[in-house]
Nucleic acid binder design. Sequence first.
DNA 1: ATGGCACACCTTGTGTGA
Length: 269
Amino acid sequence: MIIASWNVNSISVRLAHVLNWLQDNHPDHLCLQELKCLDEKFPHQAFAELGYKAHVLGEKTYNGVAIISKKSQGESEHPVLLKATSKSLSGFPEPIQSRIMAVEIPLSQDRLLLVDLYVPNGSEVGSEKYAYKLAWFERLNAYIKNELTVYDKVVVVGDFNIAPDDLDVHDPDLWRDQVLCSKLERAVFNDLLGLGMIDSFRSLTAEGKHYSWWDYRQFAFKRNAGLRIDHVLISNALAPSLQRAWIDKNPRTLDKPSDHAPVLVDLAL
DNA sequence: ATGGCACACCTTGTGTGA
């Protein structure tokens, strides 16, 4: 089972890239972030034509997440069950933004919870938005902690807007204590891992210089001046199933790209 | 210290992102 996550920075601008990428990579599930569109403007038909069904939590102008799942052959009912969205989760800091969605995926003998995140950016350390980000992440950790009492197999993906370690940063001195790299952000991220989750990419790749986001400015992609802020976390119970974890830089080389690249795992399920 | 670049929006500037 291939699960992917991609911050597309506007689904309407990036639709052709996403459709082409789906046809080339045919993941079982693709989690999107930063749709920047209302539910009713989401291009459901284009995905249906490729054999995919989308669950969408949109919002005007900002945020927005979707989980796009391959339809099973010969099944009239879409098997993936929507479990939770920002709107249905109580306790997330106000105002409620379209930043989280969870679906239950049936397995032959079991089931898996897949959670798609667009973590707040945080603006700058010490700002109101930074406090909101930390509060949001702490609420996320409480939610995941509870779900881990219900599900053994949990996958949490998305744009975390946190580079977990200096190894995930092209220039650690430039980014020292800046937003995305600060100690408190890394601490809440590590708290999530401490609940029993594994950073799939880092568990299989020890070296640095692998990033998932590059600024549009200053030829950052060409210089590989990036950050690894998009992640696929898997629960401990899934560790024996992890075959591969990787970042697909190819879409970032295209014209009018998202500033993020897709991140993926292959699980033997 | 600033802006670079991209995107959405009742658009000709502003807010947000990372």
